[in-house]
């Protein structure tokens, strides 16, 4: 392969060399035109992280793969309607994945033992046998650092809701505070995280 290296970096892996956001936008545009190769590329690029998030919520591996399949089929079907002005591709994908995982959690709630303590204890991710890329480690550290800026109650509420898939009424029960308080804490917590992580539209 051609090597046009000016910095001491390894360009072996083409996908990593582009800005991920730019690459993903380019891929989505091609997927919107029916390009299955672009879909395959996007899948390779982001599926492990989508499956990681879904598994975090559902825990069951085969159910998580099912939901991930639904997410990617939705990406394929709705790519022509993706509007880059409304946000990044990754935001779009993770929003779909989270919502579908939460819907699945709620649907299977009756048969699922929901250990109400798990959500809190479990914020530190279990390290699977997959090596983390530097990119993911940096993002992880960014989130962890931002999390330390929240009050205890904000942190617990946000963690239970996002990583546990609990509704605000469930969060209220678990934390033994009124529902109204949970809503306020979720909003305040998200505003603080937004500012800490430098999100601005």
């Amino acid at each position: 392969m051609l090597r046009l290296v000016t910095r001491e970096t390894d360009v072996e892996n083409d996908l990593e060399e582009l800005s991920p956001a730019q690459l993903q936008r380019d891929l989505i545009e091609r997927i919107a035109d029916g390009d299955q190769g672009a879909f395959s590329n996007l899948y390779d690029h982001i599926a492990p992280r989508v499956l990681g998030l879904v598994t975090r919520l559902l825990r069951d591996h085969s159910q998580s793969e099912e939901v991930t399949q639904e997410v990617f089929l939705e990406i394929w079907q709705t790519a022509p309607r993706f509007d880059p002005h409304k946000g990044a591709v990754a935001t779009w994908i993770f929003t779909m994945a989270h919502r579908r995982a939460v819907d699945r959690v709620r649907a299977s709630q009756a048969s699922r033992t929901r250990d109400t303590k798990i959500g809190i204890r479990d914020y530190d991710p279990e390290y699977d046998n997959v090596a983390e890329s530097v990119e993911i480690r940096i993002e992880h550290e960014k989130v962890e650092k931002a999390m330390t800026r929240l009050t205890e109650l904000q942190r617990q509420a946000v963690t239970l809701a996002y990583y546990g898939g609990y509704s605000h009424t469930e969060v209220a029960t678990i934390l033994d505070v009124p529902v109204g308080t949970v809503k306020t804490r979720l909003r305040d917590g998200m505003i603080r995280l937004r500012d800490e992580m430098g999100v601005a539209s």
């Binding site: 492990p48 598994t55 591996h61 993770f94 991710p125 390290y127 699977d128 993911i136 995280l193 999100v199």
Partner: peptide, 25 residues
């Protein structure tokens, strides 16, 4: 909401990846 969705997706992107099976693809 757009800003909070982006914030939430950052929480999602920080999760340890899990390798999908070949069958899924």
């Amino acid at each position: 909401v757009a800003e909070m969705r982006e914030t939430a997706s950052l929480l999602g992107r920080a999760v340890t990846p899990v390798e999908p099976s070949v069958a899924l693809k």
